[in-house]
Design a protein around this nucleic acid. Structure first.
Lengths: 202, 202
DNA sequence: CGCAAAAATTTACATTGGAAATATGAAGGG
DNA sequence: CCCTTCATATTTCCAATGTAAATTTTTGCG
């Protein structure tokens, strides 16, 4: 099977559609991301995706999965340069926010139950990979509820909630941004100063 | 002008459309909330709303504004029964989350820049009213960054981010919920234990 | 070579939001 | 009381969208 032929069969349509969707997401935004627009950009008819995805929702789900992979990569980026505890936490939170602000439309898609199917195995796996970064870093963080029942999940969710909420409120224009689009505080500026306890770490 | 007549002129269409939209939001969800469905429920043609709202987006914006008013009321509910500081903070956060979980579709709409127009004066006013509740309560909260530059805005945003993020992650199914739909922890369970300093309060 | 299956196209259709032209009725002035 | 005016609502029409069904083209295998 030859790749990228101009003729009837595209040859590599599935990844091409995902890539086109990601591009269109950056260029024209989420609301105008239609099945027909994505197909047109690849140069196929608007019903061609049906052979590879379960409708528009299926395609959006695949795009979101790729988003989660990049999201995880952005969080991991630079994390290993810092020692465990607060510095590493800051790096991951900054990565989380950096991704959200750089790709707001994709970020919105990724977390939209309406637009994509979070029961899809591939999406679940990708999203878990992203969550694992935060989870690994949350292990060892000490705060006033670190010994209460439900820790360490409570710590993970507390941390996730703060970074995610900050990203969302910024993206949706609820918290004002600087003219250059940057947040008023870095992600680490709204995260409380956790302590670090080796006995809590993994 | 008589109200609620069955004939050509409805007489009170504007609030009727908002009410119908709020009902449909609970019954059928956000994705199926079409201009035509709302108009049909009121018993008018699908172009009738044009005389009162600027398209679907305008109607959704008005619905969101009403949502913010109810949201603020839910947060205020029970707040005055508690003394300032941590107890009052808990009551407000619980109200924030209670509203979000009880009306997830409306909550999503309220915070969607795509679906509603946050430049609309009425929506701005309603949203500000909601934010003011949190702001008033955040004043006086002491934490490790309460004396850093940018406080008290930083405190407000930190608090808002945590509660909003927790609500969003629950609504979107990222953080699992109990079979009865309740959150694994109350809102106050993921909010750090702030201190209270009278000199920071309003 | 021939045939079955995969992949893509064409065609058709129901829904949607919006624009334009038209109809209706309420309100106020003579 | 009538008649004009204007807000309000309707009808009709249109472009865009997602989906389904039938059809065509290509691939790959026996």
């Amino acid at each position: 099977m030859s790749v990228n032929r101009k003729n009837y069969h595209h040859g590599d349509l599935k990844p091409a559609l995902i890539a086109a969707g990601l591009d269109l997401l950056e260029e024209t935004g989420l609301e105008s991301l239609s099945l027909r627009a994505i197909a047109a950009r690849v140069g196929v008819s608007h019903t061609a995706p049906k052979n590879h995805f379960d409708g528009l929702r299926g395609l959006l789900t695949a795009i979101a999965a790729e988003g989660f992979r990049r999201h995880a990569a952005e969080m991991r980026h630079g994390v290993e340069d810092h020692p465990p505890g607060k510095p590493r936490l800051q790096a991951a939170c900054d990565g989380y926010l950096r991704f959200a602000l750089a790709h707001p439309e994709l970020f919105r898609l990724m977390f939209s139950k309406t637009l994509c199917n979070h029961d899809d195995p591939a999406l679940r796996a990708a999203a878990s990979g992203s969550y694992e970064v935060l989870r690994g870093i949350a292990a060892g963080l000490d705060w006033d509820k670190a010994d209460a029942p439900g820790a360490p999940q409570r710590t993970e969710w507390m941390l996730w909630s703060i970074v995610h909420g900050y990203a969302m409120l910024l993206i949706e224009g609820q918290i004002p941004r600087a003219p250059d689009g940057s947040a008023p505080f870095p992600a680490s500026g709204v995260v409380p100063d956790f302590g670090y306890r080796a006995d809590l770490a993994e």
